[in-house]
């Protein structure tokens, strides 16, 4: 009896372990490539363990850390500002949508919901943002157009609706205004859903590279992911920006000029920290997910 029951468990665990390994191995390869010499990568290929080990790529990056540092600063700034204002504006709207005593609730719901059904598409947005609002090459273009995610608005609204209504009623009787109720009561009670939305907003911003693709020309404004995208297209720009100039008079040995190993090192530096930080929040957002039904 016991034996019979154990076998499926072993099988399940086996699948779980294999799948987990498959999730990790590509990272190991990339880390290994970042620790290799470019010449070995093109001759011997990628390996699980680098041989010979070379810190050439990291030395190049940290000899002039300004490029990646600036990109980190831009990304952090944009992420923090977007999360703060996005959360504020989305929850304010969500509160209005959740209150039955709001006279224009139905219309407003429709107004929000319709944007999920239909959009003008990328071309009109692009022309509007670049030619009329002139937002290209600014920090604003990375923040303002994506502040409101209607999906999250409805997620927060649903959470507000599920809060016990007597709290609101007693606050009303005490003479509290709607704004006060929102800031003093509704917001503090909604930490789980706010944490979830904050997490997803932050992740979305951190991983955003298409904004750069469409709206950024100025290399000083490149966020991390767009930087990664652009160096994959042309690593020469990065080498030059890192002062890897060839203006000295002697020839530089081929092994010392970074190539694909530098690309991989940049990928490691750009993602590594997040892979440590994001899982810490995981506990919070798994519980947040369950509140996310968005039936309108």
């Amino acid at each position: 009896m016991m034996v019979k029951k154990k076998r499926p468990q072993i099988l399940l665990n086996g699948i779980g372990i294999v799948y987990s390994l498959l999730c990790i191995i590509p990272f190991v390869i990339v880390v290994s490539a970042s620790l290799s010499r470019p010449i070995d990568l093109s001759q011997a290929g990628y390996k699980l363990i680098p041989s010979p080990l070379s810190l050439n790529a990291y030395e190049t990056v940290f000899r002039n850390p300004a490029v990646i540092g600036r990109s980190y600063a831009v990304t952090i700034f944009v992420t923090v500002v977007t999360v703060f204002f996005g959360l504020l504006f989305m929850s304010m709207a969500a509160y209005t949508l959740s209150r039955r005593n709001c006279a224009f609730r139905g219309a407003l719901s429709f107004y929000f919901f319709f944007t999920m059904l239909f959009s003008g598409g990328i071309v009109p947005s692009y022309i509007w943002i670049t030619q009329y609002l002139k937002l290209q090459d600014t920090y604003r273009v990375m923040i303002i157009p994506s502040l409101i995610n209607v999906f999250y608005v409805f997620m927060i609204r649903t959470f507000f609706q599920q809060l016990p209504s007597d709290i609101f009623e007693s606050a009303k009787i005490d003479g509290a205004s709607e704004a006060v109720i929102f800031f003093r009561i509704a917001l503090p009670l909604s930490k789980p859903v706010l944490a979830t939305v904050a997490f997803f907003t932050a992740m979305g911003k951190w991983n955003d590279w298409t904004t750069g693709l469409y709206y950024l020309n100025d290399a000083r404004l490149y966020p991390l992911q767009y930087l990664l995208y652009s160096i994959q297209r042309n690593i020469q720009a990065l080498l030059a920006a890192m002062d890897f100039t060839t203006s000295g008079m002697g020839a530089i040995p081929i092994e010392d000029v970074p190539g694909e190993n530098l690309l991989m090192a940049m990928a490691v530096i750009a993602t590594g920290p997040m892979l440590v930080v994001f899982p810490l929040f995981q506990k919070h957002f798994v519980s947040g997910l369950t509140v996310g039904a968005i039936k309108g």
Binding site: Q232, I235, Q236, I254, G259
Partner: peptide, 12 residues
């Protein structure tokens, strides 16, 4: 290969 600039810069 999409980008040969690194190899070019290295004199390969």
């Amino acid at each position: 290969v999409e980008d040969q600039s690194a190899d070019d810069a290295a004199g390969r």
